[in-house]
Structure formats: C-alpha cells, structure tokens
Design a protein around this nucleic acid. Sequence first.
RNA 1: GGGCAUUUAGCUCAGUGGUAGAGCGCUUCGUUCACAUCGAAGAGGUCGCAGGUUCGAUACCUGCAAUGCCCACCA
Length: 710
Amino acid sequence: MSQYEPQKTEPEIYRLWEKSGFFNPDKLPKRHKKSFTVIMPPPNANGPLHLGHAIFVTLQDIMIRYKRIKGFKALWLPGADHAGFETQVVFEKKLEKEGRSRFQIPREQLYQEIMEFTLANKKVMESQLKRLGASCDWTREKFTLDENVIKIVYQTFEKLKNDGLLYRGKRIINWCVKHQTSLSDVELKYEERKSPLYYVKYDVPELHSFITVATTRPETIPADVAIAVNPIDKRYENFIGKYAVNPLNNEKILIISDKTVDKDFGTGALKITPDHDKADEEIFGKHPEINKESKPVINFFGKMEGEKIPAELVGLKVFEARQKAMEILKNNNRLNVEFAPAGIDENYINNAALCYKCGSQIEPLNLANQWFVKMTEKPKGGKFSLRDLAVRAVKSGKIKFIPKRFEKIFFHWMANIKDWNISRQIAWGIKIPDEGTADVFDTWFSSGQWPFAALMSAKKDDFQKFYPTDVMETGSDILLFWVARMIMLGLYATGKVPFETVYLHGLVRDINRQKMSKSKGNVISPLEMSEKYGTDAVRMSLVVGNTPGSDPVVSEDKIRGYRNFANKIWNAARFVMMNLPENLKDIDAFAKKSRKNNALKTEDKKNLKELAMMAKKMTKDMDNFKFYSAAEQLYHYFWHVFADKIIESSKPRLNGSDTKDKSAAQYVLLEILKKTLILLHPFMPFITENIWQTIPNKQKNLLMIEKWPE
RNA sequence: GGGCAUUUAGCUCAGUGGUAGAGCGCUUCGUUCACAUCGAAGAGGUCGCAGGUUCGAUACCUGCAAUGCCCACCA
C-alpha cells in the first residue's frame, strides 16, 4: 500500500542540503581536512540538460559525496560554458526559424542577443543540475565569460605570445562556407565520397611533350603554381626544371621535384595549388624556385573569383565550376584517356572533410591574420613544447587515464599534432586582443584553461587550496578537443598538472544502440524521467552497467527497475522503523545498550560480518573508480540479502515473546539499515537522506556528512 | 592506409588460469504479513571462429571474422 513518492520530497531534501552549507568545503566540520576537488565540465549554456549531462552529474556527484562522507574537504566547482561556435550554431537555427539571419544583424547586437539567450539557458541549467542532486558549491559557480576568467585567458595568450609560441599568419585554414568561419582540425568530420579523378594533360613545349596530372579538383587548376614529381621517379626525370602550360589559362608553371609526392598515386605528378590545399601550401613553402605568386580562385562563399580564371567559371560554386572545368578540358582534348575511360576515374573514393556541425564540405582557404599556437616548439628559454609537457605528464603517471586505453589514443594524437588555429570568425566568444580582426577565440582555447581559470577566479586562495584538482570526469568524445588541451595549457600556465585522474565515460545509446538525437526522436530526458521515477532511480540507471569508456545503454525500463529498488528501500526502512521499541528517541543509546546486553545470535554476528565484508569490497571498488560494480553490489545486498533474507528471518523474533532476542533483532536491523543508507548515499542521495531524517537520532545530523562505515 | 577496442544467457553487461555470474525479460507457483513498484522456485550459455601455451583456457599468445571508435595532406 505504501509507496515512495520521490517527486514530493526530492526538492525539499535538496533545500535541506543547500541550507546546511556543506556543499561549500569551507563550511564542512573540522574532521574534513584533505581537499578533494572536481571541476565540473561546464555544460554548454544553450539548451536543457540531456542524458549525457545526467551521466556526468551522477558520476561526479558519486565521487564527491563519497569523498565528503569519507572526511575530505570536497569541492565540486560548477560552471557554465558560453560554448562559442556550438552556441552560435544553435542560435542561428533559432534565427532561421524566425526568418532572420546572423549576417543581417550587426555584430554587437548579435552578441547581446546571444548573451541573453545564453544567460536564460544557464539559469534553466542550474535548476536542472539541482534537480539531479548535484552537490556542487554554488557559491563558487563560474561562467566562461566572467570578466576575471577572460582576464586569465588573456594572460595566457600574452604569455604564449611572449614565449614565442604564438604566430599569426596567412595560412590555409579549414573554412566552413555555411558558417563563414575557420575551424580547427578536430572540428572536422570525414566522410567517404565518390570523387572523380581527372587525368589532365599539361603541355610541356620545351620537350614537345606533355605531363599528366591526376586531380579531383580541376576547378582549382587556374590557381596552380607548379607541378611536382618525386625525384626518384624515372618517368619524369627529364621534366624537372621545365615549364608546363596551364590548360585553363595558358600560364607557364614550373615542374619541380619533391620527395613527399607519391609516385604510385595517379600519374605520380601532382599539381601544386597552395591557396586551396594544405599539403600543396607546404610544398610551395619549401620551394623558392617556384617563381610564381600564389593567388586564390575561390572566395569565402565557395564561389569562383580571382584573376586568370576562364570567364565561364567566374561566379560558379565549386561543384558547378568543377563540371564546367571538366567540360572545357574535355573540349580542348586535355583529358588523358590512357589512364581511365574518357580520362576520368569515376569510381575514385576519398575522404571529404566536412564541418562537424552542418556537414558542409570544408573549403581549404588562405586566410590572413589567423592566430596559431605552436604545439611542438619549445617556448623561449623553456625546455618543453606544449605537446611534450602533456606527453611527459601522462607517460610519467602524473596524470592517469581511466580506462587506460585512452592514453594510447592521446599519445597517437599528440605524436601527429599540428599547430592549433585559435581564431574564429564568429561573434559569440572572447574577443582576441589584437588590432587587426574582430575574431574571437576558439572556445576550446578558453575552456582548455578551465581548471586553473575557474579556481583562480572563484575565491581567494582557492587555487592554492584546490589545485591541482583530483579528477576530471568527462565524455570520451571530447578527449582531444578538451582534455588534451587542458593538460597542455594547464601545465604550461601553472607548471602543474590540472588534474591527476581523467575518468572518461561513453556516449549514451538507446536500447537499439543508436545515439540519442532529437531528429531520431529517441531522446530520453533525464528531467522527465526524474519527475516520473525519481532522480535516484535515474542516477542508478546511469551508473549500473556503465563501465568507463564504453557506451552505456539507457532505457525507460531500466530506470523503472531502479524506481522499484527505491521503493524497496523505502519499505524496508519503514519495516525496520515500525518494529523499533516504542517511543525510541535515541538510536545511539539503544545501540549501545544492545551491544552491552550481548544477546546477538551467531546468525546476527554472521549477518553483521557479511555486511562489513560487502562494505569493504564495495569501498575498494569506489577507490578504484568501479562505481558500476559498487552500485550493483549494494543493490544486490540490500534487496536479496537484507530485505529477502535478514528481514524475513527476523519476523518471528520481532513478534516473539523473548524481549532480549527481540531487542537483538531490532538492533541488527537498525544497524544494517543505517550502514547501507550511508553506503547507498552517493548513488541515491535523496531517498537515503530522506529516510535518515526519520530515524530517531538525537544528533540530527545530515546523512551527507555522516561517517563511512569502514 | 595506420591505430585502439569489443565479441559471455533473448536483451544490457560483470567476471576469473580450475568445467560460468547479475539485472531486465521469460515459465510455474504463491501473497489480507514493510513492499504486486512483492515473494518462492525454475528454464536458458559448446563464454565469435581456428590454432597454440598449460595437468587444465571463457580468461594468456597467434591468426581469422564481425562490429564500433580514433587518427591520416595519396592529390
């Protein structure tokens, strides 16, 4: 008849905790000495929280509550991220719905509008974090656009500049034509696409011959400055140093040799187009003998524009221009049929670089005034490059990854890392402090400084007290975007690692292993689930079976199962309370008296010992970040040992006439209940605290700062 | 092309050098007793495939297959 109703009590319990002040480590009782710090990955303030957020809230709150109960000065510092590009994209979609466009809105106004949007979202987010039980210290909450955070970001920028780790250049960047901004290498996704390979003949008058180049981008031919072949390629020995004629504008271009050219690909001859290809740009830079200036033929809207372009191509979009260029070459008999039918290999497949947000094909373009951070060069007077700092910290074990296999991915990325373009041509973000552009920083440049920037700007001495932090818990999908950058920038700016352990969780999947997304309609809202089944049930469903690094599968059925568990706890506790001695005021005195009476049966002692053993095992799991295992053990113990066996077998004793034996049974039940409530608290904080408050306890302590049963 | 991982009951996942575990689901029975958001009993697996190491392998090694992920300037 009696059922637990979390909806009614959870918000009340949260207020009780907040009122106590214990979320703030400075307010914890004296026994809390050593600090334990987790910086919350600031959620993007551009929409409601989803299950991915609920996972991090659950895992981090478990860590924090566990350590707090264990007697640590536990700090969980909450924050919100302005999330530059991400938020701007969300906002642009909103504008689109309203029939407006970012390009028609003055920059300052756009900034203000996005700011209002973000602050409104931030507020919603905060209340949702509370609803999920996050025991973070709201007195230290930070926003990535707080003035004192921006100040720190600028300081790091200056330091990089002074150390010679920053340069500003005209360089090929990844340009998203739709969003009108450059993107860093990690902001691209790749897709295999059919991309016809054209075999184009370039005349070489000096030799009365021609050289054939294989290209997927004939529309860029007017921008060619050279042709490159491999020096060991016998076929082209005589061509090196001679001039070829550009088939689309008749300009003379030099044939050079470079050993990066793959002689086995295509014809072994590569056209060099420095304005529209990163690799070509590099080769161009290495060859001063190329006596031709590089000029672009594609503009920032992805259309043909520039000198020396055939008139038919001007103004066409890249794909249209490609068709047209192919026609011109064909009509002029410039396609070499020797290598493929009609001179075109239609089945050639390559990886197209796409904008990770909108899927538009990335246009490699040359953009001036872009800031790049050097990843592999040593700073002035310094010993280690940013890359080396990070790699050394992980290799030496100063930073540990859970699971460990992510270290390999990390090293692999670091080994091949390129300089980092931190300029973005969008309105929403931290303005880069220079005079030449209106550009803003890549969000990851500022969030890469988050652990120290948040602590330095929160409260006086926080940095000294809480840095380096203990655990960085976040999604494995942002290992390279964020974690890697935090390690580099944290070490560089402070000389210390930003955190000692990196715990990475996977991506939430639905029961069919699909990613959850709005467009698929398979999204489960953690807030809705909380309303329906209680936050504790949601949290348990997100931790049991969720091993680090692998993708957890979440379904409403699973959540319902843990709602049943919460109800089980509720009723078991009710049973124990109902069977306590009448008018019991102080359980501690009762426990003391019971121990003195020494009426425990062998079976009682055995039960208490079994609990102690389970607690020990489970504690070990907690210390090893095996929360999935700890949670499962608790679940099993509470339901199938305590409720099914111990409570059941106590019934005759509680109803019997032997008062001493009855008292012993009461004592054992109460003891097990108390201890399991503490053990369960990190996982299911609301129901455990709720029950705790109904136990006749003279001390009237909060469960959240009770002592862990050792 | 290079790398990382996964493969155990219908589903989601643990696990260990000594002939397999949990939850959900399923079957049968029960229940005015704290709880039907319940209880009891039960069915169900040649631990991806093929070799090897071993007294013994699901576990360690090798190869293969399927699946997933990451990285990459073959134009």
